[in-house]
Structures are given as C-alpha cells and as structure tokens.
Amino acid sequence: MEDRLNRAGIPKRFRARSFENYLADSDAKRHALVTARGFAEDFSAHARRGTTLVLAGNVGTGKGHLALSVAQHVMSLGHSVFFATAREIVLMLRGRWDDRSAPGEMEVLRMLTAVSLLVVDEVGVQFHTDAERDQLFGVLDGRYRDLMPTLLTTNLSRRLLQQAIGERSYSRLREQGIWVPFDWEDFRARKVGAGAAAAAAAAAASAGSAA
C-alpha cells in the first residue's frame, strides 16, 4: 500500500486523512462529506458517466482532506489514482523541455488520461498563460472524451475558475460535473486563534497567581 500511495502521488503528511476523521460540524460540511463519500463509494457508476467532482471554496476549509479521502477510498476498491497539483501537472507535461531523459508530453498525457481517477489540486493557482491553459485542457478533454472521472479542488468561484482555465475546459467539467461549495472559515486560522486565546488565558492566569 505504501508503494501504491507513493505511485499515486499521495503526500505522506496527508495519508491519515479519511472520511471518518473529517470534522463535519455544520449542515454545509455534512453536505460536502456526504457528497464526497457518495462519489467514492459509488465510483463505478461515476466511472461509467465520467463525472467531474469540483470541491470549491476558501483556503483551509477541508477540500484537500475530502479529496484525499476520496482518492484513498477509490484506491482501496482496486482502482488506479493519481494526485497532483495543477502546477505539478503542467511541470510534468513540460518535463522534457529541461531534461531530455524525462517522459515526453504525450507519454505524460496518456498516463494522466488513462488513470481511473485523476485528482487535480489547487486548480487556477498557476494559470497565467494560454500555454498552461491549453495543457490543462488537453488533460481534461482527454478524460472527458474517454468518460474518465476527475476530481478538482479550487479556491476560485465559478466565474473566476472559468476565466482561469478557459471556456473549453470549464465547459467539459460543467457538463457532467458536481460542484460542492466550501464557504466556511479557515480551519487552520481557527486553530491558531484558539491556540492564541488559550495562551493568553494561561498567561493571564499565571500573572494573577504571581500577583
């Protein structure tokens, strides 16, 4: 399993992510959990339809947690998975430019379009050129034409995502797509705030005791 996780690109820091330890303490979060879990557990049906699942919203809201939970569950069912950021995918496709021993663009494209589930993280962060948009389009279009499911995470709204990846790519994911909004506060910021409050309370208590 460790070897499979390495080949799937699952970062070591996040391999403990699961549906069971996702904090769903609001109706919106429970909706996100149920949708992501349903996609994973009914993956065979989504594979027949070529569904695209888009987890979209603020930084630190758990999009990556659920994306990795989906990826690892789908792997446990015996399907192939590949996880990468959108920027990493662009760099993979350009690998031969700087290293003649690296896989060629067509070889990388075939792998990305053939894997059972492709998880593309942080879509829209790096798209500043038409060349990058065209490269992502090649991946999404190849999967679209072959009815291959794709999972995307993004911090962008629908309008900004459309601008970032281009109309052609957006049209592909919209046709057979499920959009899940993550519009609550940053988990990490909340933890930092709670930690600071606890530290302040402890300091105040210590000062009171000293007095």
Rank of each mutant, 00 (worst) to 15 (best):
G78D: 08
G62A: 02
L23S: 10
H31C: 12
E175Q: 15
T52I: 09
A205L: 13
A197V: 05
A45V: 12
Q163S: 10
A24P: 00
N155M: 12
I165A: 00
S80T: 15
L55D: 05
V74C: 06
L156M: 14
L147G: 01
V108D: 00
S206V: 03
R159T: 12
Q72S: 07
V59C: 12
V125A: 15
W97P: 00
R133W: 04
R159F: 08
P103M: 03
M111W: 01
Q126C: 02
E41R: 09
G104L: 03
Y22C: 06
A164I: 07
D27I: 08
V74I: 15
L91K: 10
L68K: 01
D42V: 00
E122Y: 10
G177Q: 04
T51W: 06
G95E: 03
F14K: 07
E41Q: 13
V81C: 03
N6K: 12
N58S: 08
L161I: 02
I10K: 09
A211K: 11
A16D: 15
L160E: 15
W184R: 05
A210L: 14
V54F: 02
E107S: 13
V108H: 00
L118R: 01
V139D: 06
G195M: 13
L147C: 10
A164M: 08
R94M: 09
M111H: 12
S157I: 01
Y22A: 00
R7I: 05
S209E: 11
G177F: 01
E20H: 13
S26A: 06
S116M: 03
A32S: 11
R168H: 03
F137N: 06
L91P: 00
E167R: 01
F82A: 09
N155H: 10
I89D: 04
R110W: 08
